[in-house]
């Protein structure tokens, strides 16, 4: 129970400010990135008409998310943004599954990771909106029903970032803490593997999917 809420930080003083690095989270994120790169390389290596195991898995990811993107956006935009959506889902899924391994944790149980993903989705959604509709129609979208609804629309857009990132962070971190507390109470007998299966595998997959779908929906709302 002592390691509950303990974060190992590297604090670097720089011109009177203090830069804080969460070393464990950085290491876990790099593990996820390298794992994804290895997965991509192995899935691509022996390409054939009859796909092997890893190629099948890769095709599954890409087909599913291409169809989802095509449903939400149109065909031309889907060709452009389906790789982003697919990569986002695979990154978040691997992140959430990393907590299953001993001595590792999820990078998404740190608010910095989820908030940066949320801000990335926000910036991309507005970039796509400006690019597809033009700057005039984009700004006009804020004054939509009546002109004095503008502050509410701006706050609504900003609160999307907060809600999407806190949802993922809260789910993953809450699961972490519940698993830790129940393991402590039951002396790590019987119950923890099932809890890990539920919270890390099931909730992790659902939340990664929800994060990806919401990013896609935010892009689609800006385009329409």
């Amino acid at each position: 129970m002592e390691d509950l809420g303990v974060i190992h930080q590297l604090i670097v003083p720089l011109f009177g400010y203090e830069m804080t690095f969460n070393l464990e989270v950085i290491a876990w994120t790099w593990i996820v990135i390298i794992g994804l790169l290895i997965f991509g390389y192995l899935a691509k290596r022996n390409r054939s008409i009859v796909p092997g195991n890893l190629q099948n898995l890769g095709e599954l990811f890409i087909n599913q998310f291409y169809e989802l993107t095509e449903d939400a956006l149109d065909r031309r935009l889907a060709r452009k943004y389906a790789p982003l959506i697919c990569a986002l889902f695979m990154f978040l899924l691997f992140c959430n599954f990393l907590g299953v391994f001993p001595h590792l944790g999820e990078p998404t149980s740190d608010l910095n990771t989820t908030l940066s993903m949320g801000i990335m989705g926000f910036v991309i959604a507005h970039y796509v909106g400006i690019r597809e509709k033009g700057i005039k129609a984009y700004i006009k979208g804020y004054f939509e029903p009546i002109f004095f609804m503008m502050p509410l629309n701006v706050i609504g857009e900003l609160s999307k970032v907060i809600s999407i990132s806190f949802r993922l962070f809260g789910n993953i971190m809450g699961g972490d803490i519940i698993v830790l507390v129940v393991s402590y109470l039951t002396f790590s007998l019987i119950l923890p593997p099932f809890l890990i299966g539920f919270f890390f595998i099931f909730i992790g997959a659902i939340q990664a999917f929800v994060f990806t779908m919401l990013t896609l929906v935010y892009i689609a709302v800006q385009v329409k």
Partner: peptide
């Protein structure tokens, strides 16, 4: 698929209260 997304969105207020509870605890 739609049900899962809708449930996850309606779940977010519960997650906020979880975050507030964790802040109060720790």
């Amino acid at each position: 698929r739609t049900m899962l997304v809708g449930q996850a969105v309606s779940e977010s207020t519960g997650i906020y209260s979880l975050v507030v509870a964790l802040l109060l605890l720790f």
